[in-house]
Simulated scan of single mutants.
Amino acid sequence: MPPPGERSNFLPTSGTKNQHQPSALDASILGSESDMPSQFIWPHHERPCLEAPQLACKKHGVFMVVNHGVDPGLVDRAHRCMDFFSMQLCEKQKAQRKIGENSGYSSGFVGSPNIVEQYFVSVMGQDFRHFGKVYQEYCEAMNKLSMEVMELLGLSLVLGRAYLRDFFQGNDSILRLNHYPPCPKPDLALGTGPHADPTALTILDQDQVGGLQVFADHQWHSLTPIPGAFVALCYKSCLHRPVVNNERARRSIAFFVCTKMNKTVTPATALVNVENPRIYPDFKWATFLEFTQKHYKVNMKTLEAFSNWLQK
């Protein structure tokens, strides 16, 4: 780019001779140009491949998210705050999950993005406000990232950038902190077992211990942690499981992307036709969440079981 004082003097045109000259784009000029100046054309080999996320979702149900712009310092603070799991059991049980609720300690969720800080203070006391602030900020960063992912998925489905982003705007997403103590015989540990998350998308940050496996091509594959990358898991097409380590504790932070609780989930009309008829009835996310928490373990057939349950 030329110095600020010189930018107004340079107006690129299709007749520009020196292709190496630094140039500034005056958008008003483009309307009168018959050809886009070559220096402002996005090289084909650098353009994002919109078929890639669609193929990843269909074939594997999982993909890595890199170059996302999330502050690595924030992610580091979020992992440090997971020292919560090293506290005395009597302290941790202050946040114990109550029957009928989704928030809480012991195989439960920490809370939704809008109430994380208040949640920590209300169940653990003022000394834990810092924890709440860190995870509040983390949730906000994940929510922003999830909207960007939704834009990309919307484009790959030829729905446009805004469709899925708007559908999930103002969501009631959920944060979950996972801690897996070391186990001397990992192969014998029951754990959570193979499952699919009931939410639309899971953005997972796993530490460098690793342990996440996905089922593809009739076998389990371990996903090697990539520093700074998040794992995106799509519901319905990604069966996965965590595997414990025999020497080190494993920790991960999962952000489950959900719609608003009272949002009606319905297929995009642009994707429904004679060749691709709709499969499931409309439903509220709150109803589906209740079904997965009280009536049916989440797996690859949950939506079918839920549809049958709704229509009884």
Rank of each mutant, 00 (worst) to 15 (best):
G31D: 14
E33P: 00
S34M: 09
D35F: 07
P37V: 05
S38Q: 13
I41W: 00
W42C: 11
W42R: 09
P43Y: 00
H44G: 09
H45Y: 08
A52P: 01
P53M: 12
Q54E: 14
Q54A: 15
L55S: 15
A56N: 11
C57Q: 09
C57P: 03
K59T: 12
K59C: 10
G61C: 07
F63S: 08
F63P: 03
V65M: 10
V65Q: 05
V66A: 12
H68W: 04
V70Y: 00
P72Q: 13
G73S: 11
G73W: 01
R77T: 11
R77N: 11
A78L: 05
H79E: 05
C81G: 15
C81Q: 12
M82K: 05
D83Q: 13
F84P: 06
Q93K: 13
K94W: 01
K94A: 11
K94D: 08
I99F: 07
G100Q: 11
S103D: 12
Y105T: 04
S106V: 12
S106F: 08
G108D: 12
F109C: 10
P113V: 04
P113H: 03
P113E: 08
S122A: 14
S122Q: 09
S122M: 07
G125Q: 04
G125E: 09
F131R: 04
V134W: 03
Y135M: 02
Q136D: 12
Y138K: 02
C139N: 02
M142D: 01
M142K: 02
N143S: 05
L145I: 03
M147G: 10
